[in-house]
Computed example of a mutant assay.
Amino acid sequence: MESLAPNIFVNDMKATIAFYKILGFNITLSVPESGDELVWAMMANGSVTMMFQTFESLAGELPEVSRTDGGSLLLYINLKNIRQFFEDIKDKVTVLKGLETTFYGATEFSIKDNNGYVLTFAEHE
């Protein structure tokens, strides 16, 4: 295995893209390739890649994908310069847990994205 790129289902693609742009992600691919009504988008920040897809786009293919918002999922993202990143975004997002050092030596903070998912950012200093 070489990488993991989660495909996260969302209700509002425009809001999701805007939220992840706050975190420094940029669109690398989308369906359709341009326009306002995207049904799928791949976004990246450094070596972290995430995909977002509308529930409606898979309604007939995978009825198991039926949740409406959020989920029992926490995405753990390692990065450098966590303190600066926290300062850059803390007033633009919902912070669930501020900067703290864990018992295993990582500096972490957690936020909730616009779809109800929890993102924990960590730096192992």
Rank of each mutant, 00 (worst) to 15 (best):
residue 59 A to S: 10
residue 72 S to M: 12
residue 103 F to A: 12
residue 63 P to N: 14
residue 43 M to F: 03
residue 84 Q to M: 08
residue 87 E to G: 00
residue 118 V to T: 15
residue 46 G to Y: 10
residue 25 F to C: 03
residue 74 L to T: 06
residue 69 D to F: 11
residue 55 F to P: 12
residue 108 E to A: 00
residue 60 G to D: 04
residue 98 G to T: 01
residue 108 E to P: 02
residue 89 I to G: 03
residue 69 D to Y: 06
residue 73 L to G: 04
residue 9 F to A: 13
residue 88 D to Q: 06
residue 30 S to E: 09
residue 102 T to N: 14
residue 10 V to M: 10
residue 78 N to L: 04
residue 35 G to Y: 13
residue 69 D to L: 06
residue 16 T to M: 03
residue 103 F to V: 08
residue 25 F to E: 00
residue 100 E to D: 15
residue 81 N to R: 02
residue 82 I to C: 06
residue 115 N to L: 03
residue 81 N to C: 05
residue 45 N to D: 11
residue 97 K to F: 02
residue 14 K to S: 07
residue 122 A to P: 12
residue 18 A to T: 10
residue 84 Q to K: 05
residue 111 I to F: 02
residue 94 T to W: 04
residue 52 F to N: 14
residue 90 K to N: 01
residue 93 V to W: 06
residue 36 D to W: 07
residue 84 Q to V: 02
residue 17 I to F: 06
residue 110 S to R: 10
residue 87 E to F: 01
residue 34 S to Y: 11
residue 63 P to H: 12
residue 17 I to N: 14
residue 18 A to Q: 11
residue 55 F to N: 13
residue 91 D to M: 08
residue 79 L to Q: 08
residue 118 V to I: 15
residue 18 A to Y: 07
residue 76 Y to M: 11
residue 51 M to S: 07
residue 78 N to H: 14
residue 17 I to K: 15
residue 5 A to E: 05
residue 19 F to L: 06
residue 119 L to H: 02
residue 41 A to D: 04
residue 92 K to C: 00
residue 96 L to V: 01
residue 2 E to I: 13
residue 87 E to P: 01
residue 124 H to V: 12
residue 44 A to E: 10
residue 86 F to G: 01
residue 50 M to G: 03
residue 103 F to W: 13
residue 51 M to D: 07
residue 11 N to E: 10
residue 108 E to S: 00
residue 24 G to I: 11
residue 99 L to V: 09
residue 60 G to N: 12
residue 57 S to W: 11
residue 102 T to E: 14
residue 83 R to E: 09
residue 94 T to M: 14
residue 4 L to W: 09
residue 51 M to H: 10
residue 68 T to Q: 15
residue 48 V to S: 09
residue 34 S to P: 02
residue 122 A to G: 11
residue 31 V to F: 15
residue 68 T to A: 09
residue 71 G to S: 05
residue 58 L to H: 00
residue 111 I to L: 05
residue 50 M to Y: 10
residue 43 M to C: 08
residue 19 F to V: 14
residue 105 G to P: 10
residue 63 P to K: 09
residue 43 M to E: 04
residue 29 L to P: 04
residue 57 S to P: 04
residue 50 M to N: 13
residue 9 F to S: 09
residue 28 T to A: 14
residue 1 M to P: 06
residue 55 F to T: 15
residue 41 A to S: 13
residue 101 T to P: 15
residue 109 F to T: 03
residue 124 H to M: 08
residue 34 S to M: 09
residue 121 F to E: 09
residue 29 L to V: 08
residue 107 T to K: 04
residue 58 L to N: 03
residue 38 L to Y: 03
residue 49 T to V: 14
residue 115 N to T: 07
residue 42 M to G: 12
residue 10 V to R: 08
residue 59 A to W: 02
residue 99 L to C: 01
residue 114 N to T: 13
residue 107 T to Y: 00
residue 16 T to F: 05
residue 17 I to V: 10
residue 87 E to Q: 05
residue 2 E to R: 13
residue 114 N to A: 08
residue 79 L to G: 00
residue 32 P to R: 12
residue 17 I to D: 09
residue 68 T to C: 09
